[in-house]
């Protein structure tokens, strides 16, 4: 595993990835910081009470929030670290060299996976510390204990999320002998899960839930639509991650069902609800996030198990 780790950290690919991720993250925090500073100077402090620091991660800035950036491009980190982990070694002839030594196959696949995961963990932790530091210096905000805990939970969630993509990339590198094919398959799956599955979820909901009058749907119809959409979203790790991370980083957010509740209320009810609901505690947010987290963990464990089984059952011969 140490050789794998060393290979990751010394590779040109990792350096490029590191530079790209840090560049976009720094730009994102700078733009978000500007937005938060403006809001605070315009007297929006009360609006951001208890979540000013977190706003650095959730404010959209000029193009997208750091959170949205992570949901969209986090998978790239996992895919880039894993798409050729096995087939490259097989094609180079180094896999048979390693497997003919007195080690179990499990150790090879576990070593590859753990090395990738540790690399992701180190990269994201460093990134998070850097962004928090920049937030402290740039905007002059000090995070509360609750905000630090939320950022910690978000970090763990992000590592699990990217771990899923790493497992998927590893699986592709086992299934496909050609590195180019596994890279293309990884890109295709990323596009499919990030863009098509969520749309597909809405399409499924529309086809399953019969709405009598589209212009003024009844509350039960909207509730049924929301339920089906949410079930469909469970098939999309990016949707799960977005939902869970938004709940974690925005203490006022109560999940996508909140939008439904608000849409079925009068404007006065909506105002009163927002006014008196207040922010959620970290424990309450964690409870809300549990279904998404469990579904994400199921994807995470599932892809790794598939990779593991495919690898231990595969023949050793090089191409």
């Amino acid at each position: 595993m140490f050789k794998e780790l060393s290979d990751h950290f010394s590779s040109v690919r990792f350096m490029i990835l590191l530079a790209a991720v840090f560049m976009v993250a720094l730009l994102g925090i700078y733009l978000a910081g500007q937005g938060v500073r403006n809001l605070l100077s315009e007297g929006g402090g009360a609006y951001l009470e208890g979540r000013s620091f977190l706003a650095l991660f959730t404010a959209p800035g000029a193009f997208m929030s750091l959170l949205a950036f992570m949901a969209l491009f986090g998978p790239m980190v996992g895919l880039v670290l894993g798409f050729d982990a096995i087939n490259r070694e097989r094609n180079q002839g180094t896999l048979s060299k390693i497997l003919s030594q007195p080690i179990y196959r499990d150790e090879v696949i576990l070593g590859k996976y753990l090395a990738g995961l540790i690399t992701v963990a180190i990269l994201f932790t460093a990134l998070m510390v850097l962004l928090v530091g920049l937030g402290l210096m740039g905007v002059g905000l000090v995070p509360t204990v609750d905000e630090v805990l939320r950022l910690g939970a978000f970090l763990i969630l992000s590592i699990i999320y990217v771990g899923f993509w790493l497992g998927l990339a590893l699986l592709l590198s086992i299934v496909f002998r050609s590195v180019a094919t596994s890279a293309l398959a990884a890109a295709a799956l990323w596009i499919l899960m990030s863009f098509f599955v969520p749309v597909l979820g809405q399409a499924v909901a529309e086809s399953v839930v019969a709405v009598e009058d589209v212009r003024s749907p009844r509350a039960e119809e909207l509730a049924a639509y929301d339920r089906v959409s949410r079930i469909a979203a469970l098939a999309s790790p990016p949707a799960l991650f977005s939902e869970a991370s938004t709940i974690l980083l925005d203490p006022t957010h109560r999940g996508s069902s909140q939008a439904l509740r608000l849409s079925t209320m009068s404007r006065l009810d909506q105002y009163l609800l927002n006014r008196f609901q207040g922010v959620l505690s970290i424990n309450q947010s964690l409870v809300l996030v549990t279904p998404d987290l469990l579904a994400l963990l199921a994807f995470y464990v599932g892809t790794f198990l598939l990779s593991y089984l495919a690898f231990v059952r595969q023949e050793v011969r090089s191409a």
Binding site: E89, Q92, G93, T94, L95, S96, K97, S100, Q101, P102, I103, Y104, S318, A319
Partner: peptide, 17 residues
């Protein structure tokens, strides 16, 4: 398998480095 592999050297046809 481990005992066998610890006592047997193998030079594969497509010897990778």
């Amino acid at each position: 398998p481990l005992e066998v592999k610890s006592k047997v050297g193998y030079m594969a046809e497509n010897m990778g480095i």
